Simulated scan of single mutants.
Amino acid sequence: MSEPDNVSERVSEHQNLTDNALRHPVDLTIKNDIAYVTLNRPEKLNALDLATFKSLASIGRTLRKNTHIRGVILQGAGTDFCSGIDVKSLMKNSSAMLTLLKKWLPGSANLAQQVSTNWRKIPVPVIAVIQGRCWGGGLQIALGADFRYVSADATLAVMESKWGLIPDMAGNMVLREIMPKDQALRLAMCAEPISAHQAMEMNLITQVCEAPLQEAQHLLSQLTHKSPDALAAIKRLYTRNWQSPDWKMLMMETWYQIKIITGKNQRRAVKKQLDPDNAKPYQPRKRW
């Protein structure tokens, strides 16, 4: 009996290794016009290797061009959202680190930063659904989302200073929008995980949820009843101009409003309010 059992165990182990090798580091599934982007290295706590960075950046660019999707849910497979950088894979590989950090222009986003900034460029609501660990690079990715729905048992950390580094994956742009500077400094300097409820008190996240995925889906189900052009314009206005001087905010409000009212979706939004039984479905959004 022992030999068949051992053979079975070896076959099972080989199959697991094969499955892991073939598995994409990030999965993209679109269902009912909602894109589900799933970090898919659960055996590594969804730690970020170079392939994961490249896949996330590519998916972000693809979704930005998709005019049919109405929302994005960003999540992690298994028990954790993302435990941060895969240290063994990246930090001991100088060529991989250079691939992450190189950029054509000083003010453009490199590969390490695109996995955060790309979510801000997609003209639909992006919700990060967070459970377990959301540390280091994982938190930087989640900060690029518009909303962060977090399970009560999750922990979050700006972890880079633990490795003698600074946070450099573009999450700093969001921290300056949502947190006082002293709180952001403490997070970045101490590199200590905080609880979901502490993160909520610090305004780092949107909501602590018993079932964050269901809450995210519920929010998107509400937002799909709104004009996709209105939502795209609101996101672009707030993301690009939240820190702008008054004159620029006023100018962009007017420009985006003109762009909206010259399209069909605004008229269809009015029809849905005044005569819902005869209203037509929204058209795919314009380019924003």
Score class of each variant (00 low, 15 high):
M1C: 10
D5G: 00
N6V: 09
V7Q: 07
S8V: 03
S12Q: 15
N16S: 08
T18A: 12
N20Q: 14
N20H: 06
N20D: 06
N20C: 02
A21K: 05
A21H: 12
D27G: 06
K31S: 12
K31T: 13
I34Q: 07
Y36E: 07
Y36P: 00
L39S: 03
L39K: 01
N40R: 06
N46H: 00
A47C: 02
D49W: 02
L50W: 07
T52N: 02
K54Q: 15
K54Y: 00
S55P: 04
L56A: 03
A57F: 07
L63G: 12
L63N: 09
K65E: 15
T67Y: 04
I69W: 08
R70P: 06
G71P: 01
Q75T: 04
D80E: 03
C82Q: 11
S83Q: 04
G84H: 06
G84N: 03
I85F: 10
M91Y: 15
M91R: 14
K92N: 15
N93A: 14
N93C: 11
L98D: 14
L98S: 14
W104M: 10
P106T: 10
A112E: 12
V115L: 12
V115M: 09
S116F: 01
T117M: 15
W119Q: 10
K121I: 00
I130R: 04
Q131W: 13
R133Y: 02
G138A: 05
A142E: 01
L143Q: 11
A145D: 02
D146I: 08
Y149K: 04
V150H: 09
A152C: 08
D153Y: 00
L156F: 05
L156T: 14
L156M: 09
A157M: 11
M159T: 12
S161Q: 10
S161W: 00
W163C: 09
G164K: 10
G164M: 13
D168K: 02
D168L: 04
D168P: 00
M169F: 05
N172Q: 12
M173G: 13
V174T: 12
L175G: 01
D182R: 13
R186C: 02
L187T: 11
A188V: 09
C190K: 14
A191I: 08
E192Q: 14
P193R: 00
S195A: 05
H197F: 09
M200R: 11
M202D: 12
V208Q: 00
C209H: 00
E210H: 07
E210Q: 09
E215L: 04
E215F: 00
H218V: 03
L220K: 03
L220A: 05
S221A: 15
S221L: 04
L223Q: 12
H225W: 04
S227M: 08
A232P: 13
A232K: 11
A233M: 13
K235D: 02
Y238R: 15
Q243C: 07
K248Y: 11
M251F: 15
K264S: 15
K264H: 07
N265I: 05
Q266K: 10
K271H: 15
K272L: 13
Q273Y: 05
D275L: 06
D277G: 13
D277S: 11
A279F: 10
P281N: 08
W288C: 06
W288S: 08
